[in-house]
Structures are given as structure tokens and as C-alpha cells.
Amino acid sequence: MSTKNDWSRFVVRINIRAPRSRIYEAWATSSGMEWWFLRTCEYTDAGGRLLEPDIFAVKGTSYKFLWHGYPDETFEFGEIMEANGRDLFRFRFGKAGTCTVRILLAGDEQIVELEQGEIPLDELSKMQYHVGCKTGWTFYLTNLKSLLEGGIDLRNKDINLQDMLNA
């Protein structure tokens, strides 16, 4: 058995009892992303126009992400690399690599699978982007499930509470 870790990528998966269309909307619209993941999500089309909150981002859309629990100086810019309108959403996640979200069917449940790849292999990136992002995605996918199945938002939205798992 090999114990060698592939620091260039990871996959996290969670089952969610919700319509596939609702899960996809949670990723592809700024209102969806702000519902479970971000404080602010700005999707901008190729012409530089801000998309309305319920308009789906498509390939070539750029974004700006800001999180609860962090000041405005903590943000991420990137681009949507693939978006099929149903079950695949892929974006460049700044220096942290790429994120590919797949919505798969298993029985009567949807499986949300997030793969973060192309993670740089220097020591700082291993900790920040492999360990840190994997921890973050684990929480946020849990929050997506919580909201879709039960309506409870688990995020810390108080900027005064620092170093929290849920921010």
C-alpha cells in the first residue's frame, strides 16, 4: 500500500437529496453562490457587464468571490472554464488551480463531486491549497447539503470571530 500523497489534486464528494437543477443553480448563479458559499459573488460576462443574480455563468464568465468572516481585501478572481447548464461547472481558482464540479446520480440522490487540480507543488501551496482548500470545500459542501435538505446555514458571518472552521 502506497502512502504517497498526490499534492496536485484532491476530490471531495457529498450526497444531496435535492433536484439536480437546484444544485447546479447554486454554483452557476451569483445568488446561488451567495446562498451557501460566499458573502459576495460577482459574475461578469465577456463584455464586462455584471450578470444579474439569477443568470447562469457560462464559459468565459469571470468572477470575483468574497467570503463571510474575511475583510474585503480577501478575495479571489477567476474565470469559468466550462459550464454545461446541467451537471458540470469548472473554474480557475486563482493560484490554487482549477475546480471541477460534477453532479452525478446515485440511486435517488445526487452526488456533488468537487475536484481541485493543478495545485502548485511548492510547500506553501501544499498547505494552503491542498490542505486548506480541501478543509474549506469539505465544510462548504456540507453547508450546501444542510441548506438544500434542511434550510440551516452553518456559516459564521461575524467578522469578529476569526480562525473559524465555518468562515
Rank of each mutant, 00 (worst) to 15 (best):
C99S: 13
R155C: 06
L154V: 11
E123P: 14
E113L: 06
G117V: 06
C41M: 12
Y63C: 08
Q128P: 10
K4G: 02
L148P: 05
Y43F: 15
F91D: 12
E115L: 06
W67C: 08
G32F: 01
F77C: 14
R155S: 03
C133G: 05
E82D: 14
L88T: 15
L51P: 01
L121N: 09
K134H: 01
A28Q: 12
Y70G: 05
W27R: 10
V58Q: 04
A96F: 00
L144F: 05
R13W: 08
L124C: 13
S8K: 02
R17A: 15
A167T: 09
R39S: 15
R20V: 08
R22M: 10
S31F: 04
L144A: 08
L147Y: 04
F139S: 04
A96M: 01
T61V: 01
G117D: 14
D153R: 01
D122A: 03
F37Y: 10
R155Y: 10
H130K: 09
E52C: 05
R22V: 14
T3I: 04
G32N: 03
M33S: 09
L51F: 02
P71C: 05
A18H: 04
K145N: 11
Q128N: 13
L38F: 06
H130L: 07
I103L: 04
L38D: 02
A18K: 00
R13T: 06
L154M: 15
G150K: 13
P19K: 07
T61K: 00
W67E: 05
Y43T: 08
C41K: 06
L124Y: 12
I23L: 08
L144G: 05
G117F: 03
F139M: 00
A26L: 13
S125V: 02
S30A: 10
D163T: 05
K4R: 08
F65L: 12
H68C: 07
E149K: 02
S146N: 07
S2G: 05
D6M: 01
Y129R: 02
R20E: 07
L147C: 08
F10W: 04
L51Y: 06
E34I: 11
C41D: 10
E109V: 06
L38W: 02
H68S: 09
T3Y: 10
L147H: 01
L124R: 14
F139R: 03
I16H: 01
E34Y: 09
S31V: 12
C41G: 12
N166M: 03
R9P: 08
T138S: 11
G151A: 03
Q162Y: 10
T100C: 04
D54C: 11
L51Q: 09
I152V: 15
W7P: 09
L141A: 03
D163H: 13
R49L: 11
Y24V: 11
Y70S: 13
L38T: 13
E149D: 06
S21V: 13
T138V: 00
I55T: 13
E123G: 03
G132Q: 00
G94M: 08
N156V: 01
L154K: 10
L165F: 14
R22K: 12
E113S: 14
L148G: 10
D45P: 03
L88G: 09
F91P: 05
R20I: 05
F10E: 07
W27A: 07
L141P: 01
D163A: 10
K157N: 11
E123H: 08
D108F: 07
Q116S: 00
R155F: 04
L88I: 15
T61Q: 05
G69K: 11
F91T: 11
Y43C: 13
T100G: 06
A83W: 00
D158M: 00
V12P: 01
G151S: 04
G32H: 07
